[in-house]
Amino acid sequence: MNFFRLTADLMHLMSIFVLLLKIQKTRSCSGISFKTQLLYAVVFVTRYLDLPKWISLYNTLMKIFFIATSIYILYLMKVKFRATYDPSQDTFRIEFLLGACLLLALVFNYSFSFIEVLWTFSIYLEAVAILPQLFMLSRTGEAETITTHYLFALGAYRGLYLLNWIWRFYTENYADLIVWIAGAIQTALYSDFFYIYYKK
């Protein structure tokens, strides 16, 4: 564990707390893409199938937290505050993302096993999971401040992971090409969003 990775994970936690706080305080999930949240839940469930494999207490607790909160957010959006969700704003076709990521995972993976292919699928899917949310923002034209904070925390989390990989490459000879390429694309998507947002 290094500074970049720890800070990145904490930013990731913070992004989820910001989202939960926004929904609970305003009792509304307006401006939030259900499709993006659904994709994140799929990402966590398919990636953490290795939950029984022990790495550290930190690792296990974080995995449980991500799976639980992502499903809880789906519940809030689809059940508790269902009336505040407007599907007509959330029109990105996620079938294509899911299909393309599954296909890529079947072709480009470290080993062709059930758990490994789904792990790879989750890496590819996380890279593009924010697209429905960005698409929604570009349609509605503006984001609530809180939604911007949510996206900022997520973007910081991704940017810090890049620094973490550079750090790990030099300090422990760590390399993970699949994660690096997907992570670079994911960070680029956020950078593009911030660039557009900053210029506005």
């Binding site: 990775r5 994970d9 990731h12 290795d50 790495i55 690792n59 974080m62 995995k63 991500f66 470290y110 080993s111 792990w119 992971y161 973490n164 000879n173 760590y174 390399a175 993970d176 090409l177 699949i178 994660v179």
Partner: peptide
């Protein structure tokens, strides 16, 4: 050697 297979990140 690629030790990325350990999947120790989140």
């Amino acid at each position: 050697h690629n030790n990325g297979h350990k999947h120790d990140e989140l």
